[in-house]
C-alpha cells in the first residue's frame, strides 16, 4: 500500500526555456537505466531476495519513484508551453507526431521502455550486482545530462539525483557484504 505525499523529494526549478533538454532528460524517464526501470527492478526483485535486504530494495524502489516524478516535472515544464514549431526545432518533432506533448516512457532516441531492460535472476548476488551496475549507469547518465545542460536550476536537481545514485550504489554493495556473512570474522592471511 502506498501513501502519497503531494510534493517532490527535491525541488525542481527550470530557469531557461529549452525544450531540447527535455529530449535528453527523457532518457532517465523511460531509458534502460532510467528511474522507471530502477523502481520496477527493485520492487520486483525484493520478493525473492533474503529477508535481511528486502527492506533496502523496498525503500530504494520507493525513492526511485520519487526521482521519476522529478524527471517528469522537468520534462513537463520544458515542453508544456512549446508550440509545435518549437517542438520541431528542439528535435522533438518525432515525439510530437506520436504523443503531442504527453510524456511517454521512451529513451532519448524514442525507443519505448521494455521489461527486457530489467532482470530478476533469483540469485541474490546476481540481482544485487545488476542493481549496483544500474546505479552506476544512472550516475553516468546524470553526468552526461549535466554536461549538456546549461540551466543552473535543472543542474542543481540533476546533481541531487546523481548523488542519490552514489548513495544507492553503496547501499547495494553493503547488502552484498551482508549476504557474504564475512563481517567481524577474524581473517588470517
Amino acid at each position: 500500500m502506498f501513501y502519497y505525499e503531494k510534493k517532490l523529494q527535491y525541488p525542481v526549478r527550470v530557469s531557461t526555456c529549452n525544450p531540447m533538454l527535455a529530449k535528453f532528460l527523457i532518457e532517465q524517464y523511460g531509458g534502460a537505466d532510467g528511474e522507471l526501470a530502477a523502481a520496477l527492478r527493485y520492487m520486483n526483485q525484493r520478493y525473492t531476495i533474503p529477508d535481511k535486504v528486502i527492506g533496502l530494495l523496498n525503500d530504494i524502489a520507493m525513492e526511485e519513484f520519487s526521482h521519476l516524478e522529478m524527471i517528469a516535472t522537468m520534462v513537463y515544464k520544458l515542453t508544456k508551453d512549446a508550440t509545435p514549431e518549437m517542438m520541431k526545432a528542439a528535435g522533438l518533432g518525432d515525439h510530437y507526431a506520436d504523443h503531442d506533448k504527453a510524456l511517454y516512457y521512451h529513451n532519448a532516441a524514442g525507443v519505448p521502455w521494455t521489461a527486457t531492460y530489467i532482470q530478476a535472476k533469483g540469485d541474490p548476488i546476481a540481482d544485487l550486482y545488476e542493481d549496483i551496475a544500474a546505479e552506476e549507469k544512472a550516475r553516468a547518465t546524470y553526468q552526461w545530462l549535466i554536461d549538456m545542460s546549461d540551466d543552473p536550476d535543472i543542474n542543481d536537481s540533476l546533481r541531487f539525483l546523481r548523488e542519490r545514485e552514489v548513495v544507492h550504489s553503496l547501499r547495494f554493495r553493503e547488502a552484498v557484504e551482508i549476504l557474504k556473512e564475512d563481517q567481524g570474522k577474524k581473517k588470517f592471511y
Partner: peptide, 13 residues
Amino acid sequence: KPFIGPFDPCKPI
C-alpha cells in the same frame, strides 16, 4: 485554461 506556474521557464500557453 491550464495552471500557469510562477516559475515556468517558457512563455505560457
